[in-house]
């Protein structure tokens, strides 16, 4: 099993945002977590990526317990993520934003910086090459020298994905990658996600647009009020009574 959660629970002041969730992510697949707003999807991501410490339960990565690791260590293991609203550095270029993404694979320190050692020069080049490579993968080569403030919302999403890719991840978690962009652009992103997956990257994404997930994901988990109510292939999910009830009930009352 690639990533596995056991009994994962997070309580905020008595209320369970994520309640006893057992989930597994299969290597090389596109996994998805869906559910109505406030179902605990983002919290679940935050637990796996080390931003929140679970109240109870465990997270395993390739069999090792990573429950208590801080976020930066988890990134170091090859688990990367994006945020719903990415806070890129707007007054800087796409390239400069992405370069620092490879920093975790480098070792040069303050003294390398002051003395401008060979190691620093080598690693700076490695970071730049890496950045150019991932910018090309996400299809932004033409915009790499543009200020982030001047590019479109969709291009920002791609930049954020490039930044996540620059960390050399084995798996990437995408938090609502299609939020705030139109349907044409969404199709472009879907293609990108598929393409990343074909390169061997494991994907796990959060989405509440059902339609997008159904054509994309291999494996889906449905959360509602912090609890897992269903898990399976898109086919299984779309015919699951609990899911239909939660989704229709949820959106009808919302």
């Amino acid at each position: 099993m690639f990533i596995e959660t056991k009994n994962l629970t997070k309580k905020f002041g008595g209320l369970a945002a994520v309640n006893k969730v057992d989930f597994h992510i299969e290597k090389g697949k596109i996994n998805a977590i869906i559910g109505p707003n406030g179902a605990g999807k983002s919290t679940f991501f935050n637990l796996i990526s080390g931003f929140h410490r679970p109240s109870s339960g465990t997270v395993l990565f390739k069999g090792t317990d990573i429950t208590k690791l801080p976020a930066n260590k988890i990134a170091g293991l090859g688990i990367s993520r994006t945020f719903q609203t990415t806070s890129l550095f707007e007054q800087s270029t796409v390239l400069d934003n992405v370069i620092v993404g490879h920093r975790l694979r480098t070792k040069s320190n303050l003294f390398d910086a002051i003395l401008r050692t060979k190691r620093l020069k080598r690693e700076e080049k490695a970071c730049r090459d890496k950045a150019m490579e991932v910018i090309e993968i996400v299809g932004l080569t033409h915009a790499s020298d543009k200020m982030v403030a001047s590019i479109s919302q969709e291009e920002k999403k791609r930049t954020a994905i490039a930044l996540a890719l620059a960390t050399d991840p084995e798996i990437i978690f995408l938090d609502e990658p299609a939020a705030g962009i139109n349907s044409d652009e969404t199709q472009g992103l879907i293609n990108l996600i598929k393409q990343l997956n074909q390169r061997g990257l494991t994907i796990c994404l959060i989405e509440h647009k059902m339609s997008m997930i159904m054509n994309l994901a291999d494996h889906i988990m449905v959360l509602n009020y912090g609890e897992k109510i269903a898990e399976g292939t898109p086919k299984e999910i779309s015919s699951n009574d609990d899911v239909i009830k939660a989704y229709l009930g949820g959106s009808a009352s919302a």
Partner: peptide, 29 residues
């Protein structure tokens, strides 16, 4: 000058920009 124009400087700037984001890209803030 040397620090600011090095990977260390970029790391500092990443922290200034967003500590959360810096952590997700593996920086020990």
């Amino acid at each position: 000058y040397r620090i600011v124009h090095s990977l260390t400087g970029r790391t500092f700037l990443a922290i200034r920009n967003s500590e959360e984001l810096a952590q997700t890209i593996g920086i020990s803030t």
